[in-house]
Amino acid sequence: MKHTVSVLVQNKPGVLARTAGLFSRRGYNIESLTVGVTENEAISRMTIVVAGDDTVVEQVTKQLNKLIEVIKVSDLTKESYVDRELVLIKVTADSSNRAEIMQIVNIFRARIVDVAPKSLIIEVTGDEGKLDALISMLKQFGIKEIVRTGTLALGRGPKVIQSGKD
């Protein structure tokens, strides 16, 4: 099963290497990892999607907590949360099929961000299900390149993950 883990870390050099290194050396599989600064610029938030059963994720959480620069780890999968990913897709397109592609793009509330005589770049955000659906619809036209941000996630409701164990 996939778990989406939200990790608050001190925004310091090397913290990404420490976190990612922990996954590889303990044999855990990362599906995706995103990182960026939070409302407090001294703190970054990582969203890590990891595959494994509850025991594995419990160990991941504990091991992450042992890292000095990790402030807080929270398994969002245990609660209600929103997750999003942004994908850019470059598809083969010319005048014969451009209109059809645009229709699909509209249905998915995606956007076209670049047009060239023989290609389009589509920008889309959503959860995994929506993105997979769009990608499979676009396959027939020929997908040239895909780039994905990896999953971002926040817990629903007013509760926040506090940036301090103090």
Binding site: V9, Q10, L67, I68, E69, V70, I71, K72, S163, G164, K165, D166
Partner: peptide, 8 residues
């Protein structure tokens, strides 16, 4: 003293 919010 030290201030290490991630280490308690």
């Amino acid at each position: 003293k030290v201030h290490l919010p991630g280490y308690q």
